[in-house]
């Protein structure tokens, strides 16, 4: 989903950057509040960022014969709410833009918008909607659909900037969608499964931290989590 450096016209690059800025400000303030009021949760927050760090470094082969990568932003969105992921995702994207020439500074705003804003918000929305299906299913749906949403946004961003000379925006949407969408499906499933694995581990060994950030109350799984709580 990384739009390469210089591959968005200046106007588009500026517009996506402007669209991302308010989310970054809100996310930074939320992170500052968490570190002030819930110091114990800082390490959990860092781990949510670390998860995005690992997953977005893994380029995984897909059935279409091309490679792509998960985003890892669904975990933090589910645990803390989507706003913090704008900042954590931006850190990952900045690392890759500066050290790997993967993505770029001019396209950072657009990439933040898809991976660190829309992905986490879709993940969080899916998590809330899928709650009745149980914790595991809800986390899986959240991470999987958040990943797919990220790539759909990238597809839309590229189609807006580069409409097909003949078939226009719709044609470009199909073209870029063909590159990303099918490739991404198995990777989205992989991201969903890995996120469930980590949440299972957190529920087992890190329940105090989950409670500290209010995950038990906010997620609606308080009873389920509390039942297995340690004395």
């Amino acid at each position: 989903m990384h739009i390469m450096e210089g591959f968005l016209p200046p106007l588009h690059a500026a517009a996506w950057t402007a669209a991302s800025l308010p989310f970054l400000v809100v996310g930074a303030r939320r992170i500052a509040r968490i570190s002030r009021e819930q110091p114990r949760a800082k390490l959990l927050l860092a781990s949510a960022g670390a998860f995005a760090f690992v997953l977005s470094a893994l380029k995984i082969p897909s059935v279409t014969g091309s490679c792509s990568h998960p985003t890892g932003t669904g975990l933090g969105a589910v645990l803390f709410g989507p706003s913090v992921m704008a900042v954590l995702g931006a850190i990952v994207l900045l690392f890759q833009a500066l050290l790997l020439a993967h993505g770029g500074l001019t396209t950072l705003g657009a990439n933040i918008f898809s991976m660190a804003i829309v992905g986490p918000w879709v993940a969080y929305g899916c998590f809330r909607l899928a709650r009745p299906l149980g914790l595991g299913v809800a986390v899986f749906c959240a991470a999987m659909l958040g990943n797919l949403a990220t790539y759909l946004v990238t597809t839309g961003q590229l189609a807006l900037a580069f409409p097909d000379p003949v078939s226009g925006f719709a044609g470009a949407l199909t073209k870029f969608g063909g590159i990303f969408a099918l490739t991404q499906v198995p990777l989205a499933v992989i991201e969903g499964l890995l996120t469930v694995v980590v949440v299972n581990l957190l529920v087992r060994y890190n329940r105090d931290d989950l409670n500290e950030v209010g995950f038990d109350r906010r997620s609606g799984f308080g009873q389920e989590l509390g039942a297995a709580g340690r004395a």
Partner: peptide
């Protein structure tokens, strides 16, 4: 390095 940093921190925390 990116993957190792992330995995290291996550493993340390868990």
């Amino acid at each position: 390095l990116q993957a190792a940093l992330g995995a290291g921190l996550l493993g340390f925390y868990l």
